[in-house]
Nucleic acid binder design. Structure first.
Lengths: 352, 352
DNA sequence: CCCTTCAATGTCAACGTTGACTTACTCGGT
DNA sequence: ACCGAGTAAGTCAACGTTGACATTGAAGGG
């Protein structure tokens, strides 16, 4: 008995992956030229109804999907994609910003590409390069590297650059920021009004713009109130929840501990709250950045709208496309104090 | 005195946006052929050192960025981009998944495109189409539409499809899921062990896979313990924080209120916690999905690892690329109970 | 009935890059 | 001096689509 070898057609009939149909495949099946198919799929009107239907039928049958790469290339390399470069997608602050960008861009038929620098300054240029090579039509970035001058050329070459949450270094780019100083100052003033004289500040990094601004606001408000500014009450090394918690413990274990604490960001807040749970003293607390359970927990915060920050950034980018040479715009979004109880506690007498 | 008209060169010298330099521009400046530039920038080795340096210098001078679109097109339309379609980027669960995908893909030199369906089932196909037209090399999706059969063709055309958190409907795709039933059952068993006989369930939607699985786990565990299953204690209409909070209040205001509550997801948890704050009774509580402050607040949860879910999904997609015809893989990631106090409260006697 | 106008469709080249091939040298061995 | 092998470089076409322009035929005006 002979062993029948598989027929060639059998092998051919089970392709692991057939090639995607192109416009020409559709054209052949519909019996028209490629150009006509092009017209149909890009919705031009000068095509007869019968032809249009025939083309549509052929396209559907072949499961044709126009190749956006080819289209963008032909149209001059300007894509319908915008890039967003941020530090850590896990941080709800950034993801809210991303959601705001995504929504606004989607309204304009644009798609968002995300890349994370993992909060590594050395990673920024690399991640940005990957986006530019994909010809994003604009670049929204939360700058982390100490210098963004390398983006000047891109701006000149027609790619709008918008900085989010922090201004760029050595680059005249549009930016969207929060009223950081004023927010921190409001928080301090509110605490002072409740009788606090010793207020701690827990922040992340002395090189970070938002940290510095908020710290300035904090100091200015203390000075304006005629109070003492003390380095002892300022911590700039709370990079994450863990270190913020530790910093809080240390602050409270000091000789002359504060009766109130201001946390410079959401991560720090989480850490401070964890630390405060272990203390019998009732420390007043205000956090910068609102968060999910803050209302439930009665946490007073300096609130703002991160999604709106994304929206505004998207708008700046879209506007900039139309006037590449104009002076950079800086949008400052308001912060406001949301009183929920934790920031309204009076100074704990046992701590004095 | 005559007015000198601006010289043509002056006008030309101030272009609002000059065209991006191409490979040929670099070639011209370096005095070599385009192909040689191509070799240099794509790191091929058969180029002399001097030529390479000359080309690099020219490229730098012109701020040349290779056009990835053109490259991908020439190379056969397979890009270095993967698509992630999810419901709401604001939900920390999804953003953690996204972070996991992004990280794993970045390790392989791939970029992630994100699009949100805004939890609108009708939006899914549209968003997916946009990605496929951009020729993402694989598609990771949190399915929301009642039917994904429209993706079968894409799979056949060589685009891996991986479903995240929920399986697809009418589509043989790889998927990554959590052990939902088991997680919910564990939570119930733990509550029963502490003496609870009446346990409430607050979930989001009777059409949602995770909801149904978790509800099944809850019911099964009750039945296994010989306890009564009552529709009165099950709520399937807590779509957001607000409604979860309301549902909790209603549950507790009932004739025979539960002494413990299981929330089916992080949004529901937030709502339940808000509602419980307004109650004098001490209700035991367990939430599905871990969250930032859960440890600080002493909230017992059914925990899992969303970032890992993203990582696994990315791996499935990468594996699938190499064997498009194999049977679908289903990865089930473990859930485990994290005891923190809220779930270990005994039944409140005043509530009996 | 011819000429214009316009709608429907087609032809061709180009977007920027790279794979397949070819060409021009150089070098070592005999 | 000659050949084969190897290295460095170049030529050309093609990826899938669309803009510019050309062609066809029918309708409408005089």
């Amino acid at each position: 008995m002979e062993i029948t070898p598989p027929r060639a057609t059998e092998l051919v009939d089970v392709p692991s992956a057939m090639a995607r149909p192109t416009l020409s495949d559709v054209a052949r099946l519909a019996g028209v030229s490629g150009k006509t198919v092009s017209r149909v799929i890009s919705g031009q009107h000068n095509v007869s109804v019968e032809t249009r239907e025939r083309v549509m039928a052929a396209a559907t049958r072949l499961r044709f999907r126009p190749n956006h790469l080819a289209r963008d290339l032909r149209r001059g390399g300007v894509t319908t994609t915008v890039g967003f470069v941020m530090g850590d997608l896990t941080n709800p602050f950034y993801s809210s910003v991303a959601a705001g960008i995504e929504r606004e861009m989607a309204r304009h038929g644009l798609t968002m590409v995300i890349a994370s620098t993992d909060d590594d300054p050395g990673h920024e240029a690399q991640v940005v390069a990957a986006m530019l090579e994909r010809r994003v039509r604009s670049l929204l970035i939360v700058p982390i590297a100490p210098d963004q001058s390398y983006l000047e050329g891109e701006r000149q070459l027609g790619t709008p650059v918008v900085c989010i949450d922090r201004p760029a270094h050595n680059l005249a780019a549009d930016s969207v920021l929060f009223a950081n100083r004023e927010g921190a100052a409001m928080a301090v003033r509110s605490l002072v009004e409740r009788g606090h004289r010793k207020i701690g500040f827990i922040g992340s990094s002395p090189t970070l713009y938002t940290h510095l601004e908020r710290l300035s606001g904090y100091r200015d408000a203390l000075i304006d109130a005629g109070l003492r500014v003390s380095r002892e009450w300022e911590r700039s090394d709370a990079h994450d929840t863990e270190s913020a918690s530790r910093a809080t413990h240390e602050l409270l274990a000091g000789e002359d501990p504060p009766t109130a604490i201001l946390a410079a960001n959401n991560r720090a807040s989480t850490g401070v709250l964890r630390a405060l749970r272990d203390t019998v003293r009732r420390i007043a607390f205000i956090g910068f950045d609102d968060f999910d359970l803050a209302d439930t927990l009665g946490i007073t915060v300096v609130a703002h709208d991160p999604a709106n920050m994304g929206t505004e950034a998207a708008r700046l980018a879209l506007t900039r496309e139309r006037d590449l040479s104009g002076a950079p715009t800086q949008v400052v979004l308001p912060t406001h104090l949301v009183h929920r109880g934790s920031g309204e506690l009076p100074p704990d007498q046992s701590a004095v």
